[in-house]
Design a protein around this nucleic acid. Structure first.
Length: 429
RNA sequence: GGAGACGUGGCCGAGCCCGGUUGAAGGCGCUUCCCUGCUAAGGAAGUAACGUCGUAAGGCGUUCGUGGGUUCAAAUCCCACCGUCUCCGCCA
């Protein structure tokens, strides 16, 4: 959520920033209009309340002194003021509810350094590592869904039978590889990030905090009977750890990581990327998340990116880093770097991590603040997060990249300790 | 799921029966100062958040789990909901 005071004092700056996303600025104008009216009426309401309070005090004094007639006269006046106050209050509440409703759907202001652009085609590829299109052998040009069937490690058909399209099931060594990747991701970040195992089903309010609601309702699974939502990412519960809390600046930055299942309806992408693990409704992911001061944010952002990047690099996978343009930036984000890993069998770049700085956008929604060491009062803090490792696409890229001429899969050295020393997934005999 | 008890400021805890002078006693913690060879102990003052107006000092408003009601006036009375604890039931 944008800062209403910023909108008030620098409307043109805010509007220019929103326009860079390609979003309309009408909501901002509307907010300004409603907010102005709200403050006018709010002031009048407060004055009325002040008078009622003063009268009540007088009444108390008069009654104590036995001046009943005088007291009753004041009471009558106060009753009249009360009516007025009630009407004003209702209107003020209505206005502020409207302002909030609009503000909840307006995206974050992109960072200054964000490249301009309309859509994903305008993203800037900042770096490509380990990719040489001519280096891939014939045996690596097999798609993971075929490998999965050959080795009996991926069973899509039966998963679809029990849960429907775009659900998958890993089996045997395939399931073990999932578990290995999760442990690999958690263990390598243990030095700085606290491991958390949060709920995967959360309240509406929790989904609003990160910006997944109300705008993106159709992307989330909803448990209607209990009005709970299946999380699309651990970002959702991790962000809400500090909801309505005030931290001390000396505690920051706080760093959390969590492995959870993630649930996505993928509405609007039906029929796209349906094969294998490219796009699934339920998947495992290790997420890294931090609470930081605005001053710490740049360093934390770099830290998360470096950790996400090195996790891919150490698995021996080719990857590239994209600086998302203003038109492709997530709604809540001010700056995002995507990491895409290359899958030689499918011959595609797969997004495996999105490392974002949300400035104070999410923290304002979640009301997470900190007390600065210098100065007084509280400030809204900044949140940042990135996938430490998203399992399915890494799994896909890994089995394709490390497929041997005999059809076995070589387990990269860095991963072996997390898979009981296993060096390969053997070819079928 | 059933029964009972409870939900007050950073924390502990009074107030609620008998509504007003209670933004809320007292204590702890924290900050600054004084005292002191150092530390401890002791003394003095200060110490909520949010909204709004104001250059500021400060004014006004809101907040005693949440929402609603009664009243001139609610931490205090009434209703609903949420949460915590204890006992019972069920259970991985």
């Amino acid at each position: 959520m944008l800062d209403i005071r910023r909108i008030r004092t620098e409307p043109e700056v805010v509007k220019a920033a929103i326009a860079r996303r390609g979003d309309g600025i009408e909501p901002i104008d509307r907010v300004i209009e409603l907010d102005t009216r709200q403050r006018e009426l709010g002031a009048e309401r407060d004055d009325t309340r002040a008078r009622i309070n003063a009268i009540s005090k007088q009444v108390g004094a008069l009654r104590r002194d036995g001046e009943v007639t005088e007291a009753e006269k004041l009471q009558a006046e106060s009753r009249r003021l009360g009516e007025h106050e009630k009407a004003l209050s209702a209107e003020v509440e209505e206005l502020s509810a409207q302002v909030r409703e609009i503000l909840l759907t307006v995206g974050n202001m992109p960072a200054e350094e964000c490249p301009d652009g309309d859509n994903e085609h305008d993203n800037v590829i900042t770096r490509v590592e380990g990719y040489d299109p001519d280096s891939y052998q014939e045996h690596q040009r097999v798609a993971h869904w075929d490998i999965g069937t050959q080795l009996g490690i991926l069973d899509v058909d039966r998963a679809v039978r029990m849960s429907g399209a775009m659900f998958v099931m890993y089996r045997g060594m395939g399931a073990r590889l999932v578990r290995g990747l999760i442990n690999y991701a958690l263990d390598r970040n243990r030095d700085a990030y606290e491991e958390v195992r949060p709920p995967t089903v959360v309240k509406t309010e929790t989904m609003i905090s990160t910006g997944h609601l109300p705008k993106f309702v159709d992307d989330a699974y909803h448990l209607e009977r209990d009005d709970l939502w299946a999380i699309p990412t651990a970002e959702v519960p991790l962000t809400s750890i500090g909801r309505d809390e005030v931290f001390d600046e000396t505690e920051l930055p706080l760093k959390f990581m969590a492995h959870t299942s993630c649930f996505r309806r993928e509405a609007g992408s039906a029929g796209r990327d349906t094969r294998g693990l490219l796009r699934v409704h339920e998947f495992d992911k290790v997420e890294l998340l931090s609470y930081a001061t605005p001053e710490q944010s740049a360093a934390v952002h770099a830290d998360i990116l470096e950790r996400a990047e090195s996790a891919i690099r150490d698995l021996g996978l080719a990857y590239r880093i994209l600086d998302l343009c203003t038109g492709d930036l997530g709604n809540s984000s001010a700056r995002t770097f995507d990491i895409e890993t290359y899958a030689p069998g499918a011959d595609r770049w797969l997004e495996v991590s999105s490392v974002s700085w949300f400035s104070d956008y999410q923290a304002r929604r979640a009301n997470i603040r900190y007390r600065p060491t210098e100065g007084k009062g509280t400030r809204v803090l900044n949140t940042l997060n990135g996938s430490g490792l998203a399992v399915p696409r890494v799994w896909a890229s890994l089995v394709e990249t490390h497929r041997q001429p005999d059809g076995s899969i070589h387990i990269p050295e860095a991963l072996q300790p997390h898979m009981g020393g296993l060096t390969e997934i053997p070819a079928p005999s």
